[in-house]
Nucleic acid binder design. Structure first.
Length: 256
DNA sequence: ATGGTTGCTTAGCAA
């Protein structure tokens, strides 16, 4: 199974790029984030013509997540379904070929100490609780998406410049560790130890031309799935050219 | 250097 995750930053604007990418990379499953459309405006037809089913949890203007799959997704869930479930569409999950796949868009957090920052941290706690409620350790779980956290210094182009950012703050990193402590590993780091790999570059300040990036998009796998992970990569070229997303797609290969 | 760009929506927010 070729599993991909991509923050498209508007499915409307990125539809043509997405269709080209599907044809070129031929992934089996794709987790999308930041659709910025309601379900009714999602391009179901174009994607069906390209050979993909879609489980969509959309929202007007902000957020919105989806899972594309060649096989029909089963048991689709939208949101945490917990007591404090809210209107922000940041989680969709489904079962595909026995793998529990989730597409997540973790809140950015704006500024450390802000209201949005508190929401980010609490959302990540809810994500861990959702994993605990929903899955058992032997399950095949793939948690994919924009986590808005660079796990370590080697995931940041200029750690000093990013000191104090919501993407690198120790508390955010701890929150990510707490999610992963469910029993998930960063698939990319199974195959690449060295620094210099990023998945997001700011549109501003020539972020991409200067390669001022961070690795904040991840495919986290449960133990039994990690054992079957034969490769991982970042489609850096997708950040190039006209009207790119500010994120590049991330891929994990699973031998199922 | 508190800058700069993109998307949604139409002046301001979110990232």
């Amino acid at each position: 199974m070729k599993l991909m995750t991509w923050n498209v930053n508007s499915i409307r604007v990125r539809e043509a790029r997405l269709l080209r990418l599907l044809e070129a990379a031929r992934p089996d499953v794709v987790c999308l984030q930041e659709l910025k459309v309601v379900n009714e405006a999602f391009p179901f037809e174009a994607l069906r013509d390209a050979g993909y089913h879609a489980a969509v949890h959309g929202q007007k203007t902000y957020n919105g997540v989806a899972i594309l799959s060649r096989l029909e997704p089963e048991g689709v869930e939208r949101g945490f379904g917990d007591d404090e479930d809210d209107e922000q569409a940041r989680l969709v999950a489904a079962r595909i070929a026995g793998v529990h796949v989730a597409s997540v868009y973790v809140p950015n957090g704006a500024e450390v100490g802000s209201e949005k920052w508190a929401y980010k941290l609490s959302w990540m706690k809810r994500l861990r609780h959702w994993l605990d409620r929903r899955f058992a350790r032997p399950d095949l779980v793939a948690l994919c998406g924009d986590f808005n956290v660079a796990p370590e210094a080697r995931d940041v182009s200029d750690p000093d410049a990013w000191e104090g950012s919501v993407l690198t703050d120790p508390e955010a990193r701890k929150a990510l560790q707490d999610v992963r402590a469910f029993g998930l590993v960063d698939s990319f780091r199974l195959h690449h130890e060295e620094p210099g790999f990023y998945s997001w570059w700011d549109y501003r300040m020539l972020g991409f031309p200067r390669n001022k990036g961070l690795r904040i998009d991840h495919i986290d796998l449960s133990g039994p799935l990690a054992e079957r992970c034969t490769g991982a990569s970042i489609e850096r070229d997708e950040r190039k050219g006209k009207q790119p997303s500010d994120h590049a797609p991330v891929i994990a290969e699973l031998d199922l």
